[in-house]
Design a binder for these strands. Sequence first.
DNA 1: GGATAAATGAACCATATGGTTAATTCTGAA
DNA 2: TTCAGAATTAACCATATGGTTCATTTATCC
Lengths: 113, 113
Amino acid sequence: MVNSEEVLDRTFGALSDRTRRAILRRLSAGEATVGELAAPFDMSMPAITKHLNVLETAGLIQRQRDGRMKRCSVRQDGLKPAEDWLTGQTMFWNGQLDQLETFLAREKAASDA
Amino acid sequence: MVNSEEVLDRTFGALSDRTRRAILRRLSAGEATVGELAAPFDMSMPAITKHLNVLETAGLIQRQRDGRMKRCSVRQDGLKPAEDWLTGQTMFWNGQLDQLETFLAREKAASDA
DNA sequence: GGATAAATGAACCATATGGTTAATTCTGAA
DNA sequence: TTCAGAATTAACCATATGGTTCATTTATCC
């Protein structure tokens, strides 16, 4: 098990950079090559490669060879840890403990499955 | 206007550290002094102060003097930018463009208000 | 007023982060 | 089989981050 705190560190860390958020949003519209992703930015290719590495190790994207290019795509459930943490947090301080119980039970069921 | 990208940078950046997330969760259960927040961690007080500074400039908490202590509390809408970004993102790649339109309209209305 | 406690500030250190340029790998095409 | 393009790796640099210790402010209590 890859410690849930580490996952959250990496997920939120990946989202804390605007270039990476822009890349994610671009990829939401569909797959793209590394070159296509780099085009809008005034930044070298290696810089983009580094950002893609961060996104990939955070489980937010995946890359696969396609000829001499590489196609990047979103990993569908990559944002779930971040969403779940935020949901739990807001329900907590909203004092909605009844909803929180339901939420936690659902989480547990999902992780056991 | 404090550039929405900067807000997201700071918000996700603040959440990318497990000590700060733990502090936020602790504060969800109710106010606490800096000393109470520091107690569970094997870390100096100045380190905690720094984390609190990060959380405060990200708009996630606030501090107020109370005698010779300071009481920290959660800022209720501090997580909203992060939540909204995540919601928009997941709706997008889920292909739920109809729901996305509704969401964006609601966002716009809220920001205009 | 003087001692003590809570929190912060200042200075410092090691490592992480985000960028660069130059070299390298891998693949497709002439 | 050589050439050219896409992407990554390597090496480097400046700044940010997360921690430390020591000094300082602010407020309480005797």
